[in-house]
Design a protein around this nucleic acid. Structure first.
Ligand SMILES: [Mn+2]
Ligand SMILES: [Mn+2]
Ligand SMILES: [Mn+2]
Ligand SMILES: [Mn+2]
Lengths: 218, 218
DNA sequence: AATATAATTTAGGTTACCCAAATTATATTA
DNA sequence: TAATATAATTTGGGTAACCTAAATTATATT
């Protein structure tokens, strides 16, 4: 069965909206994610249902079928492998990879996918700490929590960021925070939930509550 | 100015049909190259003329403008760099790369293009011996000729193939002929122009006239 | 010059995508 | 329960890239 680029993007959107909540998504959320008109979403969700890639009812919204999930995970696997390639081998910064990966994830070639994964050493995580699904769609699950939930005095390791926007990633660069860094939670301010952390080299920085919610640690 | 994937493919077709003859192409040739209806070609060539990417008249056919040539060469550069990457780093055979490169050549990212070229060491030729345009569109020109035109007794080096079809490339693999191989022309049969060549290891094989015309040597 | 052949264009569709605005269904709230 | 807000669907329309068949225009051949 042939899945178009647009269809792949819709499947990804359904996945990312449902994989945490285990529920269903409405048209609006998807329309927003894809910056597309809700009418277009209705049209496309119907088509994806005809293709048995999602289940869809007007009232409950959409969720992926087994087939649809497989397809979505394959696209995500490609996306994250390409991001990894760009950072490790082509001197891209972690805030520069997403746009290009959005294009590369739609290249169709099983051999390319397998060889790329092998070339990279079958990595488990991408440059943002997101798990890379394996050939069967399995992802390593990490028992991490948001930095805001860490106890004061705890020494934690940064393992993932929840926001891949270039602006946020550059902000972390400027603060001197990178994936795999070990940091110590010194204080959490009562009045604004901002977090004071100690980085390597004893450097201390304040992170806003919003920023601290986007940093995952273990 | 935005150039769609389809438009890029038309520009490539115009290029490959004109760059040798220095002339112009008619609708029919392009229709054939792209396996598309001549009427569709008329439509698209008009559009490309509006965009100032080609010059086009009904009687003389189409040729690229300076702008159009630049765009076409950029796509070709990407195509050949990706083919090189696939062969050198991802274990692709030279008969497996073309299809995937047809997709990869449309990825839009100047940084990706620059970094990929640098990663490969700015190669001058692709796995089929085709020259790779540099950033400014300049290609190394090679003074080579078809194997059929080599003199008997001459020792020549295989530098390029004129047919990238998987069937032909696999045939060469089977015969034991690869790029950069040195071969000796032993005989050319009068009655069918077939060529007897000596490969390394003294092995001798007959190549049909058709095959010999698709092998470039120097 | 007349005619035959080849190339191109016109005319009228199709499919896959998109959007704005109007309508209808479902929740909320008063 | 009725009024109102929110969500989903329908209607109507648009674009890009293709298609076929028929008409037109160029180029060759007699
Ligand atoms: Mn990404
Ligand atoms: Mn990522
Ligand atoms: Mn190729
Ligand atoms: Mn090639």
């Amino acid at each position: 069965m042939m899945i178009s680029i647009t269809e792949e993007n819709y499947l990804k959107a359904v996945f990312s909206a449902t994989h945490l909540s285990e529920g269903r998504v409405g048209n609006q959320i998807i329309a927003e994610k894809l910056t597309v008109n809700p009418a277009s979403v209705t049209e496309m969700l119907r088509k994806l249902q005809d293709k048995k890639l999602i289940e869809y009812t007007r009232t409950d919204g959409a969720k992926l079928t087994k087939e649809g999930l497989k397809a979505a995970l394959k696209v995500i696997r490609k996306h994250r492998l390409w991001e990894t390639f760009l950072v490790i081998h082509l001197n891209f910064k972690w805030d520069e990879v997403h746009e290009v990966a959005e294009q590369l994830e739609h290249i169709q070639s099983d051999k390319l996918l397998d060889e790329l994964a092998a070339f990279l050493g079958n990595p488990g995580f991408d440059p943002h700490g997101d798990p890379i699904p394996d050939k069967n769609g399995k992802m390593q699950n990490m028992k991490c929590k948001i930095l805001s939930d860490a106890a004061i005095g705890q020494k934690v390791k940064v393992v993932k960021v929840n926001d891949n926007a270039a602006s946020f990633l550059k902000y972390l660069d400027k603060q001197g925070i990178a994936l795999a860094d070990k940091i110590i939670v010194k204080e959490i301010q009562d009045f604004d939930q901002s977090v004071l952390v100690e980085l390597k080299g004893k450097k201390e920085v304040y992170l806003s509550a919003a920023a601290a919610k986007k940093i995952m640690v273990e």
